[in-house]
Amino acid sequence: MAEEHAALVAEQFDDQLQQYQTATLGMWIFLATEILFFGGLFAAYTIYRYQYLPAFEIGSHHLSVLWGGTNTAVLICSSLTMAMAVRCAQLGKKKPLIAFLFVTLIFGFLFLLIKFGEEWRHEYLEGLAPGVNFTYHGPHAVHVELFMFFYFFMTGLHALHMIVGCGIMITLIILASRNYFQEKFNAVEIAGLYWHFVDIVWIFLYPLLYLIGGRFPH
């Protein structure tokens, strides 16, 4: 019993509960810094949207609601499979854990494929990529470019988090297949917190970037 206990609980913790609470709290503190990391961009976005609303509406109407909405659904589905993976880790079910982690990874790849392969490629070819290929010469051209800069930077930073998340998924799948999580489920749990956080960022990005001023005919 004592040996088993030592294997599960690191030296600095009293028991498994304390270890679990410390890991969770640590992850939440990291996520708090992430909220402010994205928060600076959201604050800048709010101010420029207020100042150049007509230009932001034009820019927003060039984005694809279909693909943005699809990606929102993809991320929500990935959050469900991640939550189920955490549940399996808690219950010590190895095979379903690996299956759910794998499906989550596939959803992550699907999101990135739609983001880069469909949306970014399309916007680049349409001449809406600031600094690379920007050929829009309609009204408010300068500030439409500013909106597109916000769009590419915010979705790019989000996509970077998705890439990191996919790397974490791959790591967890490898560790799970080596029976690492038979008793330790903390790593899966806090990876889940990270994954859900990235989902939440997209939940705000979707209406703020794709649906500015509504999509009805003006």
Partner: peptide, 15 residues
């Protein structure tokens, strides 16, 4: 095993 450390949510809630 993990039940005494973390609360295990029902599947139905997640769905």
């Amino acid at each position: 095993m993990a039940e005494h450390v973390a609360h295990v949510e029902r599947k139905r809630v997640y769905v």
